[in-house]
Amino acid sequence: MALNKSSFFVKISPYLNRQHVRVSQHNRCSSHFTYSPDPKPAIKGEKTKMNMFQAINNALETALRTDPKAIIFGEDVGFGGVFRCTLDLQKKYGKDRVFNTPLCEQGIAGFGIGAAAAGSTAIAEIQFADYIFPAFDQIVNEAAKYRYRSGDQFDCGKLTIRAPCGAVGHGALYHSQSPEAYFAHTPGLKVVIPRGPIKAKGLLLSCIRDPDPCLVFEPKALYRAAVEEVPVSDYQLPIGKADVLKEGKHLTMIGWGTQVHVLMEASEILLKEHDISCEVIDLVSILPWDRETVCESVRRTGRALIAHEAPLTSGFGAELAATIQNDCFLNLEAPVARVTGPDTPFPHVFEPFYLPTKWRCIDEALKLINY
Rank of each mutant, 00 (worst) to 15 (best):
L189T: 02
Y148M: 11
P238S: 12
S150E: 03
V191N: 01
Q153V: 11
F111K: 05
N141C: 13
Y174I: 05
R162Y: 00
P179H: 08
K145C: 13
F217P: 02
T101V: 11
D155Y: 03
F99T: 06
F136L: 15
A225D: 07
T186N: 00
K199A: 13
P211S: 12
C214V: 10
K145W: 13
C156W: 08
P211N: 12
V230C: 07
P194D: 00
P231R: 04
C156I: 03
C214R: 05
T160R: 02
P102D: 10
A172G: 11
Q153S: 10
I108K: 01
D137V: 14
C214G: 02
R149A: 09
F99P: 00
Q106E: 13
V192Q: 01
S120R: 12
S233W: 00
L205E: 08
G110F: 09
R162I: 05
E229K: 14
E228W: 08
G166Y: 06
P179Q: 03
I239A: 04
L103E: 07
D234V: 04
L237S: 12
D137I: 13
C214T: 09
G112P: 10
G166L: 00
A116L: 06
G171E: 04
L215F: 03
A172R: 06
G112T: 11
A163E: 01
R195T: 08
A124G: 11
Q236P: 00
A172S: 14
I198R: 03
A109Y: 00
G119S: 10
V230W: 02
P213I: 06
V98P: 08
G202S: 04
A109S: 13
F183T: 03
C156T: 09
K201H: 06
V192A: 15
F133E: 08
P231Q: 08
A135T: 09
A135P: 00
D137M: 11
E125K: 01
Y174R: 06
R147H: 13
I123L: 06
Q177V: 14
V230K: 01
V192W: 01
Q127V: 10
L173H: 12
S206R: 10
F217D: 04
P197M: 09
K199C: 05
I126R: 03
V191P: 02
P211D: 14
K145R: 15
K199W: 02
V140N: 05
A143Q: 11
S206Y: 07
Y148H: 15
L173V: 08
Q177S: 11
P102L: 14
Y131L: 12
P194R: 05
Y182H: 13
D212W: 09
P134R: 10
Y182C: 08
A163H: 04
A115Q: 13
Y174F: 15
K158E: 06
P219L: 08
G112W: 03
L173Q: 14
Q236L: 14
V232R: 01
D155G: 12
D234F: 15
A167W: 00
L237I: 05
I123G: 01
P134C: 13
E228D: 11
I193V: 15
A184Q: 06
T160E: 03
A109G: 04
P238C: 12
F217M: 05
E229F: 01
A117M: 15
V98H: 10
A181V: 13
V140F: 11
G107D: 06
G151W: 02
G171A: 07
K190N: 15
I198F: 09
G166C: 08
Y131A: 05
L222R: 07
G157I: 03
I108Q: 09
P213C: 11
F99H: 10
R209I: 02
A135E: 00
E105L: 12
R162N: 01
